[in-house]
Write a protein that binds this DNA or RNA. Structure first.
Lengths: 229, 229
DNA sequence: TCTCTTTGCGTCATTTTAACGTGAAGTAAA
DNA sequence: TTTACTTCACGTTAAAATGACGCAAAGAGA
């Protein structure tokens, strides 16, 4: 009998869907590949799992070396197993998605990529591998998660106005939400804490600045979106 | 440079949390191992992913050869990567959960197991590997999913009464739900279709039999559970 | 016929939601 | 200073959903 690790195993990759929000636009970070397969094509950043590494370890390594960022919100998405998803052979991909505030990082292309760029999620180029599929699933997860779980603040500055949070929700959910009802729900749920500070330098009334309430009890709010049917 | 598949990769296993419902009890199928590691211990049924296999392919193979069942509801749960989760070495596990109607299958222990048995989810023995952890996550998923998505009927006969469905929900969610409000919600959401038939041979009033409405539009109902806090 | 249990339908007070009104705060131009 | 304009913060109201019950019909057995 062969010893345990001498059987041939599929390779294991981690692929990242990195979301960023800026200028009222939700974007995804894509990387232009320098090598085959999919040379000169846009793909999600990713990398192979090292023998001693955890998934989050691989995520951090990718984020640091390929994109120059660290300490971000990460969540496992799904594992993808289509036998033909990688032309090099059998590669299983574990998808993760990250939420980052682009203002905090200066994205750099590691030496493995021609280029790294933010793309509006509504205007994506063709993607290599099955990355369009992974991306779509990540976007769907983000959309459903933000409706009942406070992830929005990961994409904003530490201090933000209710209006900014409202715009974020409208942008991600691609819908309109009544401004006044939104404010009431967010405040009733104690999603945010009023800092007493105000955002200065705007041409109209200066709105109050809030911070995320870290003591928020989970599932305490529910933003509804009109169902299309 | 080494060719692509000569790098050493972690092994990839698929582990199954098979739920069954019978006699007002939610159970999980466990397997008593015949070999090391965890010889004579209870574990989730599982198996290694073959090079050409999909996850669902592995699931079917396990269900058929180890348990003698096929054609069941399966959903991917999560992938588990703790470096020490398997004493034989680095093994990544992809967790799936299955919902089956025990009345439809006669569970058999394949030749790899001492025994296969249903265990009440509230009275589980110690489990090998990190299988307790996988199980807990599966139970949590089932509980949250059943509140907004029609999965309950996978565990029942094709024809069932509202009372039977109600008991299933109370059993899985470990709570009491008002019988009359439950009925109203299920009917308003068009979760089920009245067949006009009645369940005969009961000692009291003969309830109407329903079947699941396969045209149900998703997210059309929401069973609430009192939040403990 | 009477009793007992389950089933199916209904009522009602309370809470939640969606839709929208309005005055205060602030800037800029008259 | 006054006026005009915009955004912000807080209300109001009608409709819908929810939770907590009431009750009579159906069926079995005494």
């Amino acid at each position: 009998m062969k010893s345990f690790h001498e059987y041939k195993n599929p390779s294991l990759a981690v692929d990242l869907v990195v979301f960023g929000y800026h200028d009222n636009t939700l974007s995804v970070l894509l990387l232009n590949r320098k090598e085959e397969p999919f040379k000169d094509c846009w793909t999600l950043p990713g990398g192979f799992l090292q023998m001693e590494e955890t998934f989050l370890g691989t995520c951090s390594r990718i984020l640091q070396t390929k994109l120059g960022m660290d300490q971000v919100f990460l969540e496992q998405l799904y594992s993808f197993d289509a036998p033909d998803r990688d032309p090099r052979g059998r590669v299983i991909a574990v998808g993760y998605y990250a939420l980052i505030n682009p203002a905090k990082f200066n994205v750099v292309a590691g030496n493995m990529a021609n280029d790294v760029k933010w793309f509006n999620v509504r205007k994506l180029p063709a993607l290599g591998f099955d990355h369009k599929h992974i991306f779509k699933q990540a976007l769907q997860r983000l959309r459903s998660k933000i409706q009942y779980y406070p992830v929005g603040f990961e994409l904003l500055d530490e201090l933000f106005t209710i209006t900014e949070l409202h715009e974020l929700y409208e942008c991600i959910l691609e819908t309109t939400i009544d401004r006044r009802n939104f404010r009431r729900k967010i405040l009733d749920a104690a999603y945010v804490i009023n800092t007493g500070l105000k955002r200065e330098g705007l041409k109209n009334r200066h709105p109050e600045l809030y911070r995320f309430n870290k003591q928020l009890k989970k599932n305490s709010f529910q933003i509804n979106v009109p169902t299309e049917s």
